[in-house]
Amino acid sequence: QTQEFDNEEEARKAEKELRKENRRVTVTQENGRWRVTWD
């Protein structure tokens, strides 16, 4: 699953929550947008 964010702060917040659920999370930056991908 993927979700896009406008800034790193929001993306990192989402990453932190997903990691609490023991998910594999990848955060990438593309064209000024932050993308959080998880399984």
Rank of each mutant, 00 (worst) to 15 (best):
T2W: 15
A11K: 01
D39S: 13
R24A: 13
E9R: 07
D39G: 11
W38P: 03
T26Y: 13
E10V: 02
Q29A: 07
V25P: 09
D6G: 07
A11D: 00
T37P: 01
T26W: 07
E10K: 06
T26N: 10
D39T: 10
K20T: 10
V36P: 01
D39W: 14
L18H: 11
G32T: 05
E9A: 08
W38L: 05
F5M: 02
R23D: 12
E15V: 11
N31D: 12
K16G: 07
Q1T: 13
D6A: 08
E8N: 02
N22I: 05
T37G: 04
T26L: 09
E4S: 09
V25W: 01
E17C: 12
D6F: 07
K13M: 11
K16H: 14
N7K: 06
R19C: 08
R24K: 07
K20W: 07
E15S: 06
E8A: 03
Q29P: 08
Q1V: 07
F5P: 01
R19V: 11
Q29Y: 15
D6N: 12
D6Q: 08
E21G: 08
L18I: 04
R12S: 03
G32L: 05
Q1H: 13
V27W: 01
E21H: 14
N22P: 04
F5V: 02
W34S: 00
E9D: 11
E4D: 10
R12E: 04
V25N: 00
E30V: 14
E8S: 03
T26C: 12
N31E: 10
E30W: 10
W34N: 00
E4C: 09
K20I: 09
W34P: 00
L18R: 07
T37V: 09
Q29C: 10
E4V: 15
T26H: 11
E30G: 02
E10Y: 03
R12K: 09
T2E: 11
K20P: 03
R35M: 14
R12W: 07
T37L: 06
N7A: 04
A11E: 00
T2C: 08
E17N: 12
Q29W: 12
R24H: 15
E30R: 09
E21P: 06
R24G: 03
K20A: 12
K20N: 12
E4R: 03
D39V: 14
E17M: 12
E9I: 12
R33T: 08
E15A: 15
D39K: 04
R33P: 01
Q29F: 15
E10I: 04
T26S: 03
W38S: 06
R19D: 05
V25Q: 00
E17P: 02
E17S: 06
R19F: 09
D6I: 07
V36T: 01
R35L: 15
R24N: 15
T2I: 14
R24E: 14
W34R: 02
A14S: 06
R12I: 06
F5D: 00
A14N: 04
T26P: 01
T37R: 08
Q3C: 15
Q3S: 07
Q1M: 12
T37Y: 06
E21R: 11
E4L: 15
G32H: 04
K16W: 08
E9H: 13
K16A: 15
E21Q: 11
